[in-house]
Design a protein around this nucleic acid. Structure first.
Length: 872
RNA sequence: GCCGACGUAGCCCAAUUGGUAGAGGCAAGCGACUUAAAAUCGCUCAAGUGCGGGUUCGAGUCCCGCCGUCGGCACCA
């Protein structure tokens, strides 16, 4: 193809327009306070999920979502909106750091190089970003505010009364009033335990080879995703963010958002709210247990308490040491050791057989005073609920499997109401329990046990338990042992107390280090920068860094006011721009990024810094683009398509158009170079609609383009197209908008006389999709027909208005059916009455045979569409 | 196992509240132009909508039961 002559000079056109846009700052959005700001204009905020600038550069999956938001942005500008359409870089992260370690290049260098490459690639596609608002999470002027937000989290607590975050000062004040005699140390400990950012000792995925803690999703089958190194569970002191305080709001406030229902559901499931009860089982006075101790379990089925035939504790449960009898000690110890050596992944492998051991002790079931054995097993997780369960093997599959294996009693207490010989976990009628609940349905029996919201239930009245709501979501492990991340604005004193740095000390920049290799111990690389670490005579800096998620939690806010030196965002900018009207990105961020960003947003909202409760009003996930072989694109498969190559061959407009023409935005679809060629041919057809080659092969305006009145047919298709393209852009159905423009092009191509007024209008429609070619053609006809096409850029000119009058016909085609089967069609006047229609239909030769000798039972008329005669 | 998305010409995909299965592109075939080819222009071809039931005058569309592909979650009591 490179040998072949280009069908139109896209390479010259595209470069020219791109540099013009750049020089003129055509797509600059003005902020409140700017001299050219127009408060009358409505705003529109179209946001892409910003990329991690990897060394590989863009592949054709990136521009899919970017093109969609670009079309919307260009379209909205033409409708008179002030459009915020920015781009930036999520540039902290492990790949740059690993590269640094392996090649001795500072991650800042790699990052800068990668960003430059990414940016150049994006600019070649002709996106209408306001590059004045470009942000980079690794820039100290950016991450100073990431650190500032961390200070807000550190200096806040969650007030359950108002169900919102409040300044920690309020908590300190009320604590002082409530406990005036408390020592400073005690008070400090209490306050620290309530902060939204706090320190905890938690089991983490520690990777010795990489020298860092990894997130669960970075661990694949006990090995690190990057490098395939072994990962072990290890308790470490970590910074945590109290996202669990927001569980309820993160679920409830999803409701008003215009997000795909699947993504909402995914978030709900991730947060995993379940209602139930804590139930206390008293320990039976065994040899080592002291009387009166109790085990608390969490259950969502308090109606099945009478079917609880044993208790299971997580192997790590704190009571295990206390209750294990000497006969069982050896077995229990061995089991706990095995469990501890397993990774989280191995522990939760559902396919594996249940395992566990008996502790030798017993507990008393509070509902019937029965003595039931206490086991430990790794299918009970220490991190959920109370780390202990009551096992009801008749009505829980996991308990059933366990009981069957170890010969424990299985007692049925729910009647399914139908024949069911499997383990029944659904709702039914209570049996074999007690007069208290026997005969009740599952929901009623639950209510008796836990209460109905007004009246306390049996458990509470008898001191045997409490209603309780549990969540799967855990607090967010927020520290990493890495160099290439935001340092914490925190330090430690000699006594081991942490304290926040002041806002004036921000940004806390990482020291320039030559050696950022992991230390091989739990100490982060920053601990090697001894001078930096030492803050004052009696204090040292925190040496952990923040995870990659941090910067992306609030970047959408910074775009609104990127150069603000005094605030992370000004009140005016927040008021005006937020929230995001359209957010487009991949499903891979459906849970974590979106959940974390929503959490931070809510905290900042609670503290009075933001007006909105939610950041992203409308969310769309673009579908993945597969390789030509229908497989996921990957280097190893060799099916990766580089947008640069596509642009070299066919131009940026063709790339943009094909990305959108492939199919519905949200759908997964395979790439096809033949398909690119198809849209390229379409653009060439558009070009030749206006242009023709002279003897020397130079392009000039075609004689066929003239200032004539369009025909009725031409007007009709033009206005159909104006209507459809506008509608389809609004609903993000770009593929069908493009096909309509192809239809129009075909129609006008076959015309000998091409009315310039119609063609000019068409260029407006094409402009958001293929901005370079449309601007160029518009410039050419504006020069030749100044009365028809004003000499202005399409980017700034108004979207055409369609006129419904051109769409209606005097006549219409009506489908004639007999008994629902198509028999004929007829052309009738638009004014024809139903009776006239019926009479005309019955006269048709192709209809007659089917109604002859039959009784007409019914005639169905769909106005303007069809007539159906029901006869037998 | 659970949740979600998708199954329509050879391929990618269209088809208002149920109302003519086809808009567009790719591929294929034919013709025009050409010494010839490419490019271009014009024309043509093709499925009865994954399978089985049901509702309806009428089902790609609604309901029930399956099958397949892809993605996500996965012992959360």
């Amino acid at each position: 193809m490179s040998e072949r002559r280009k069908q139109y000079p896209f390479d010259e056109i595209e470069a020219q327009w791109q540099s013009l846009w750049d020089q003129q700052k055509t797509f600059r959005a003005s902020n409140p306070g700017d001299p050219d700001f127009d408060p009358e204009k409505p705003k529109y905020y179209a946001l892409d999920m910003f990329p991690y600038p990897s060394g590989q550069g863009l592949h054709v999956g990136h521009p899919e979502g970017y093109t969609a938001t670009d079309i919307i942005s260009r379209y909205k500008r033409k409708l008179g909106f002030n459009v915020l359409h920015p781009m930036g870089w999520d540039a902290f992260g492990l790949p740059a750091e690993q590269y640094a370690i392996e090649h001795g290049v500072h991650p800042r260098e790699t990052t800068e190089k990668n960003i430059a490459h990414f940016k150049a690639q994006l600019q070649r596609i002709g996106f209408s970003y306001d590059w004045d608002r470009e942000i980079n999470t690794t820039d100290p002027s950016y991450y100073r505010w990431t650190q500032w937000i961390f200070l807000k989290l550190y200096n806040s607590y969650f007030d359950t009364e108002s169900n919102a975050a409040r300044p920690i000062a309020q908590l300190i004040k009320s604590r002082e009033e409530d406990f005036p005699g408390e020592s400073a140390g005690e008070r400090n400990a209490y306050i620290n335990s309530r902060r939204l950012a706090y320190i905890d000792e938690v089991a983490v995925n520690w990777c010795p080879a990489l020298g860092t803690v990894l997130a669960n999703e970075e661990v694949i089958q006990g090995k690190s995703e990057r490098g395939d190194h072994p990962v072990e569970r290890k308790p470490m002191r970590q910074w945590m963010l109290r996202i669990t305080a927001y569980c309820d709001r993160l679920i409830e406030e999803l409701e008003d958002l215009d997000w795909p229902s699947g993504i909402k559901k995914l978030q709900q499931n991730w947060i995993g709210r379940s209602e139930g009860a804590d139930v206390h089982f008293t320990l039976d006075a065994g040899e080592s247990a002291s009387t009166g101790d109790r085990i608390t379990v969490f259950t969502t089925r308090p109606d099945t308490l009478f079917g609880a035939t044993y208790i299971v504790l997580a192997p790590e449960h704190t009571l295990v040491d206390e209750i294990t009898t000497s006969q069982q000690l050896q077995e229990v110890t061995a089991y706990r050791q095995t469990a501890a050596s397993k990774s989280e992944r191995e522990r939760t492998e559902t396919s594996k057989e249940k395992s566990g051991v008996f502790t030798g002790s017993f507990a008393i079931n509070p509902v019937n005073e029965e003595k039931i054995p206490i086991w430990i097993a790794d299918y009970v997780l220490t991190s959920y609920g109370t780390g202990a369960i009551m096992a009801v093997p008749a009505h829980d599959e996991r308990d059933h499997e366990f009981a069957s294996k170890f010969g424990l009693e299985i007692r049925q207490v729910v009647d399914p109401g139908k024949k069911d010989d499997s383990c029944f976990t659904g709702e039914g009628t209570v049996i074999n329990s007690s007069p208290l609940i026997d005969g009740l349905g599952t929901p009623e029996a639950k209510a008796v046990m836990i209460g109905n919201g007004k009246e306390p239930g049996w458990l509470e009245k008898n001191g045997a338990g409490m209603p309780r709501i549990n969540f799967k979501l855990r607090d967010w492990l927020f520290s990493r042992q890495r160099y290439w991340g935001e340092p914490f604005p925190v330090a430690w004193d000699d006594a081991g107390n942490h304290f926040a740095l002041s806002e004036e000390e921000l940004p806390v920049e990482a020291p320039a280090m030559d050696d950022f290799k992991p230390t091989g111990t739990a100490d982060p690389p920053l601990s090697k920068a001894l001078e930096w670490v030492k803050l004052h005579e009696h204090s040292t800096r925190e040496t952990n860094t923040m995870p990659q998620w941090a910067g992306s939690c609030w970047y959408y806010l910074r775009y609104c006011d990127p150069d603000n030196k005094h605030d992370f965002i000004s009140r005016e900018a927040d008021d005006y721009w937020m929230n995001v009207d359209l957010y487009v990105g991949g499903t891979e961020h459906a849970v974590l990024h979106l959940l974390y960003a929503r959490f931070w947003h809510k905290v900042l909202h609670d503290l009075g810094y933001l007006k909105t409760r939610e950041p992203f009003q409308k969310l769309v996930n673009q579908g993945m683009i597969l390789g030509e072989d229908g497989q996921k694109m990957s280097k190893s498969r060799g099916n990766v398509v580089n947008p640069d190559e596509v642009i070299n061959e066919y131009g940026a407009d063709s790339l943009r158009l094909y990305e959108m023409f492939m199919g519905p935005l949200e759908q997964v679809k395979p790439w096809s170079m033949k398909g690119v060629e198809g849209v390229y041919r379409f653009l060439a057809r558009v070009w030749r609609l206006f242009m023709e080659e002279d003897q020397e092969g130079k392009w000039q305006l075609s004689d066929k383009v003239s200032n004539v009145e369009p025909t009725k047919k031409q007007l009709r298709i033009l206005h159909e197209t104006i209507k459809k393209v506008g509608h389809d852009i609004e609903s993000l159905d770009f593929n069908t908008a493009i096909s309509q423009m192809m239809k129009l092009t075909n129609e006008f191509t076959s015309a000998d006389s091409r009315p310039v007024s119609s063609l000019a209008a068409f260029l407006h429609l094409l402009n958001p999709f293929a901005p370079h070619i449309s601007e160029e053609l518009n410039r050419i006809i504006a020069a030749a027909f100044p009365d028809v096409a004003p000499d202005e850029q399409l980017a700034n000119a108004s979207w055409p208005i369609f006129n419904e009058d051109y769409l209606v016909d005097d006549e219409m085609e009506i489908v004639v059916q007999v008994n629902g089967k198509l028999r004929d069609k007829m052309i009738v006047s638009k004014e024809a009455s139903e009776a006239e229609l019926e009479a005309a239909a019955k006269q048709l030769d192709k209809v007659q045979p089917f109604i002859e000798g039959a009784t007409v039972r019914k005639v169905i008329i769909v106005p303007g569409k069809l007539i159906n005669i029901v006869a037998n």
